[in-house]
Design a protein around this nucleic acid. Structure first.
Lengths: 335, 335
DNA sequence: AATAAAATTTAACGCGCGCAAAGAAAATCT
DNA sequence: AGATTTTCTTTGCGCGCGTTAAATTTTATT
């Protein structure tokens, strides 16, 4: 950098400022530097840069399981937003295990990130560790909330979305049963169950909940196995099933097909199946899945913007913010 | 670290060695250090550590499009392998755009990674940039090959796998047509087309190739739209279609369902559809997709091991290695 | 026990940059 | 035009560790 300073005719501290934030120097000098850069292609040492800086230009993004298309999608949106803002996103997956989540936060801490976007496991997460992390680093949660952790939470309003779906299903046919995992780690599942109970009560229908055994993240498999078993045994008292998420629904649709059960809302159909999340593949199931679309883009944008706001203000938010976006009913053929 | 050295009774250079590689110090001192670590929980500054090191403990992993489940899966396998080996994987997606691929390599270069695993776009990639990168950093390619770039390439033997599938399809019914993208960026698509032509010639059947218009990575959408149009227009001369990859097949299956065409190898079925890759969702299509399983695990393991071999040898491989794993026929109901 | 080999300590330099203070230069304002 | 503000330059310290070389200690070998 010393070298580049002499050949470019700019002092080293000014260059230092420039590389930290190109807009912090006068426009004319900035142009001079950029001219010189094109000729001598010098690039500052990332490690030396960040060593003495309290905060870097890194933004951590932690998701519980990257192989779940929902998180790949939202991760992608968030990553691109960060790049556009001139930051370096670092996308970390917790690979479905709690240890990795904790490890990821530990790794991030030593990277002195300017901020972190975290989609935690939820109940299973190490709440204390996450709260402590939030004290040191600007932290915004998304998808799954943990009370009092981080500066803000952005997610979907499960009560609105489930109510929307239940209402639609009741109006257009038999009231739905709920199909879900027995021990969901994700708090959204619990909210959705409660929302289902509320909605059914409000509509004056009896609620029926069916829970699938199984651990892990192979939701399609579980939906197919357990859901298929229930279909075969005809345990469902109505012909309409609301699955707690699309991945379970995809599995159940597959099982229904295998059993020769025609799914859909047509006259020739035996039952209806609906999901929640508008999984990228739900458009291509057979039949295409009626579901609730989470507002990926808004969630990603709001999460990033909130994080930037906290980062720029250099102080904590006066009050923790919780933003819930409404879900949108996506009517396809399955229900 | 100076501090930790005094309280632990270990000299700083020894600690330095320890943090670089715990096995490089005597076992007794290593235990003393680990004891002290538990009491004083000191952690070296990542940036200061890496500033003066030629190589870091980082390993870059670059995939063209993380939202494609194939790459999420293989990325996951590779990531975990790196973690197990004590390295820090950095997973980067090129988000389907060439500029990001180049940017990703540039970012990685300044992170002084110990090695990089790259799944390039293929033909579209900046070959010179990748070759140049390979001169500076141990580089192993996977999935898509670029001649002479990096130390090795690990992928699937498309000629074997397609031949396996064509042979199966011919034996069990009508010979297949090939359905693919018109202008595939991935070199595997070209290999598969050639393999299809070869196999059909060998079997003494006439080859029929149908190409879908469309750009980008929305293969399911393209398969559904274009494939559906072709199905509706009955352009296929046989009742069996081999799709160049599972994502196209998933789209086409969806379209077939919408058209009321019964897909499968049963007596009551009108046509057969097969894919290639054993996409994570192919087990749950309707009907479940007959396809070729790429050996994810072997590819990931071999790629990582090869990279480590190059990294440890501190020199280039005497000859560039190309390893192709055989595909495995996965017979499900669709064909 | 004597010798050789391996591991550790001591001491000291440097990496590439952030950062702070004080003065000089340029741009803006009255 | 001068006064004021902004920006830049000069100077120099220090971050936290890698790394080296010589001196010393510990372990392994004969």
């Amino acid at each position: 950098m010393e070298e580049f300073a002499s050949v470019s005719g700019i002092s080293r501290p000014t260059l230092s400022k420039f590389f930290n934030d190109p807009d912090s120097v006068r426009r004319t000098t900035r142009q001079r530097i950029e001219m010189a850069l094109e000729q001598h292609d010098y690039r500052p040492n990332v490690y030396a840069m960040n060593q003495n800086r309290r905060k870097t230009k890194n933004i951590g993004i932690v998701v519980p399981f990257l192989a779940d298309p929902f998180f790949t999608e939202i991760g992608r949106a968030v990553e691109l937003a960060c790049i556009d803002a001139g930051y370096s996103p670092i996308l970390l997956s917790s690979h479905g295990s709690l240890e990795h989540e904790t490890d990821n936060l530990e790794s991030l801490r030593s990277l002195k990130p300017a901020g972190v976007l975290l989609a935690p496991f939820g109940r299973a997460s190490d709440k204390d560790a996450i709260c402590a992390f939030g004290k040191d680093v600007p932290l915004v949660l998304f998808d799954a909330n943990i009370e009092d952790a981080g500066e803000a939470f952005i997610g979907t309003n499960n009560f609105q979305s489930i109510d929307l779906m239940v209402d639609y299903l009741c109006r257009s046919g038999e009231p739905p049963c709920l199909f879900e995992m027995k021990s969901p780690s994700n708090p959204n599942a619990n909210k959705r169950r409660q929302a289902y109970l509320d909605s059914m009560a409000r509509q004056g229908h009896e609620a029926h909940i069916f829970q699938a055994d199984g651990e892990g993240w192979n939701f399609e498999e579980i939906g197919s196995q357990e859901g298929g078993r229930m279909l075969a045994e005809k345990v469902f008292p109505t012909n309409t099933i609301l699955c707690s998420n699309d991945r379970l629904a995809i599995g159940m649709l597959s099982a229904a097909y295998g059993l020769g059960i025609r799914v859909g809302h047509g006259a020739d159909c035996a039952m209806r199946i609906a999901g929640h999340d508008d999984h990228p593949f739900s458009r291509f199931t057979c039949p295409p899945l009626t579901t609730i679309a989470q507002d990926y883009t808004s969630i990603a944008d709001r999460a990033v913007n909130t994080l930037f706001r906290v980062m720029e203000s250099e102080e904590r938010l006066s009050a923790r913010e919780e933003t819930l976006f409404d879900g949108r009913l996506v009517m396809r053929d399955s229900a």
